[in-house]
Amino acid sequence: MAKDAPSHEDDAVIVCRCEALTWGDVKQAMEAFQPTSLRQLKSVTRWGMGICQGRVCRPMMAATTVEDQTEAAFRLVVRPPFKPVAMNILGHEGEKV
């Protein structure tokens, strides 16, 4: 079977697998919003806001260029639940089971 040559379009490559965010989406957001931190980039692209919470895509996002290079611009912030949890379990934490 003949194979089509692959697309070399880096822009079409998915970088945040959860949110199906592409490298092109990230570059576009960089240009449109000129974010000054990874957190701000996150707020306009949703990288790291899916179910894996950025565990996979974080290093790729760091390869983007954001103005601010201070630690505050890329510090890891973790909020519970650290792993997804069903509502009925969340609603009854602390109760004897």
Binding site: P80, E93, E95
Partner: peptide, 23 residues
Amino acid sequence: TSVSGLAHAGGGWTATFSQRAGT
């Protein structure tokens, strides 16, 4: 057992989990 929460409480730590209720 996945730890879903870890909160400072009473001088120690209270852990909660994704797979079951209880701490």
